Simulated assay, not measured.
Amino acid sequence: MASTNNTKGNGHPAPAEELPLPPPETETSLANQAIMLGETILTIQAGGTPVYGILQRSRAMTSQSDYFRLQFRGYAKAEGQHWVMLDGDDSRFHAVYNLAWVRVDRPSKTVTFGPKGGIQCSPGMTGSGLDTYLFANVINWAKGVCPEYAISPGMVSIGQPPTEDERVQKHAFYAGQAFQFEWQDPAQRTGLYFKDKVSKLLGVWNKDSVKEFGGEDMLKTLSGLDESRAELQAQMERLENAHESMSRALQKEKSTSQILTGVLILVALIAIWAVI
């Protein structure tokens, strides 16, 4: 009976063949499994106008992958003393706009940032710095989870032929997080961003443009509003008391004036009668 001899010619066992790595799980599948971790209020300076909205964090973990996603939904913007409610893509969690994610693939020890076409802001959030904030925060999350993992290069494209400013901004967006960036075509409509390790990325944003409004800040604001309301109530009560006191004083003065007027009329009548 034939037998299998798993040895080399020198008598040592032959090394086992390495199994191929499984393909990475898709972000769509992981997104469907993601569980919300929490929400934070953001204040964003969009064109000099404060915009308020909700930042939602979600995560999916499998035996192969770790997936983290941030999504922003606008709520309202403050115009002077009035709040204007947002609508359309600005006001809802969207599958394309105002989100960023990162997928960790454990078998290959690699990290992929997304969306794959680059982070896109809804019309009302364009130029607000929200895209940089979202990208910086998924970078910081990855740095905390798998700093030594490699980064899968990402490809971004610009639909229309870009202007010089658009090319500079696109390059600066990735370079600002310590990525290397190279255009892949002569027209510079497609670019590749890459870096060898997650730990070498920065994860920074303009904290004057985008601020997190956490639970403690919310409680402080509510407490301050309650104190202001109590002070306004006390002022109203003082004003009402002063008004009542003034009304009583005026009524008393009016009564005194009426009495004096009556006395003067009576004295005048008596004087007339005396003359007659």
Rank of each mutant, 00 (worst) to 15 (best):
V51S: 02
E39Y: 04
P153T: 05
S209C: 13
Q177I: 03
R189A: 04
K143E: 12
Q45L: 14
T43Q: 14
G203T: 12
G38T: 10
Q188D: 10
P20S: 05
I265V: 14
N140H: 01
I151N: 01
L99H: 12
A78F: 08
I44H: 08
N241V: 04
R57H: 07
W141T: 00
R229T: 01
M36H: 03
M125F: 15
E240C: 04
G124Y: 08
H12Q: 14
Q64G: 03
A16F: 09
A178H: 08
V145C: 06
K8L: 14
W273L: 14
I119N: 14
N241G: 02
H12L: 15
L222H: 07
S58P: 00
N6F: 15
F181C: 03
V210F: 13
Q45F: 08
P20H: 01
I139W: 11
I54H: 11
L219W: 01
Q45G: 07
L134C: 10
H243Y: 08
Q160C: 02
P162R: 07
W141R: 04
F113K: 06
M61F: 07
L239G: 03
Q188K: 13
K77C: 12
T261I: 09
M36C: 09
M61H: 03
P15N: 11
A2S: 13
T163P: 07
V156E: 04
A16I: 13
M125I: 11
S199N: 05
A234D: 12
I44R: 03
L99F: 04
I259M: 14
Q180C: 00
S91K: 12
E244W: 05
Q177G: 06
S3P: 00
F179H: 00
L19Y: 04
P22W: 03
T132M: 06
Y149D: 08
Q188M: 14
L266Q: 02
R69F: 02
E148A: 13
A172V: 05
V168C: 04
E166C: 03
Y97H: 15
V210P: 13
Q33S: 07
G74W: 07
E227Q: 09
L232P: 03
S245Q: 06
F68V: 01
G11K: 09
S199R: 09
V263D: 10
K170T: 12
M36R: 04
T62E: 00
K8A: 12
F72Y: 11
S3R: 06
S63A: 13
L99W: 01
Q71Y: 09
A230K: 09
P107K: 01
N98L: 00
M1T: 02
Q188I: 03
F135L: 13
T221Q: 09
G124A: 14
S29I: 02
A136N: 03
G74V: 08
I158K: 04
R189F: 00
L30E: 02
E231F: 13
P23M: 05
T221W: 11
A136C: 02
L99T: 03
G114N: 15
D208F: 12
A187R: 06
T7H: 14
I270E: 12
F181E: 01
